Amino acid sequence: MRRVLFAVGSLALLCAMAAAQAPLDHANGPAAHAAPAAASDPRALVPMPQPLAQHMLANMRDHLAALQEIQAHLGTGQMDVAARIAETRLGFSSLGLHGAHEVARFMPPGMQDAGSAMHKAASRLALVTTDAAATGEMAPVFSALAAVTGACVGCHAGYRIK
Rank of each mutant, 00 (worst) to 15 (best):
L74V: 10
T130K: 11
V103K: 04
A31Y: 05
M79E: 08
A83G: 08
A37Q: 11
K162M: 09
A22E: 08
C155S: 09
G91R: 01
L13S: 01
P36E: 12
P23W: 08
E87N: 13
M79K: 03
S94E: 04
H63W: 14
H73P: 03
H26W: 15
S94C: 05
S116Q: 12
M138H: 08
D62S: 10
I70V: 15
D25G: 05
D25Q: 12
H63I: 00
A144C: 02
A35L: 12
C15V: 14
T129K: 06
A34W: 14
T129G: 02
D62K: 06
T88F: 07
V4L: 13
L52D: 05
D80G: 10
R2I: 06
S143T: 09
H98T: 02
L145P: 00
V8D: 04
P109H: 11
H156Q: 06
G75E: 05
A139Y: 07
V153L: 14
A16E: 06
M107V: 00
T149M: 07
P23N: 07
A16T: 11
L45T: 12
S40I: 06
L74G: 02
A139H: 11
V46C: 03
L127E: 12
G77P: 08
A157W: 08
G150S: 04
M1A: 13
G96Q: 11
H55T: 02
A139L: 14
V46R: 01
F142P: 02
V141Y: 02
M17L: 15
T76P: 00
D62W: 01
H73V: 03
P51F: 12
M60H: 06
L57D: 04
C152R: 01
A114Q: 08
M48F: 09
A37E: 11
A27G: 08
A117L: 06
G96D: 13
I161G: 00
A72K: 11
A35I: 10
V128Y: 02
A31R: 13
Q71E: 13
V128M: 05
A133Q: 15
P108H: 12
M1L: 10
R160D: 05
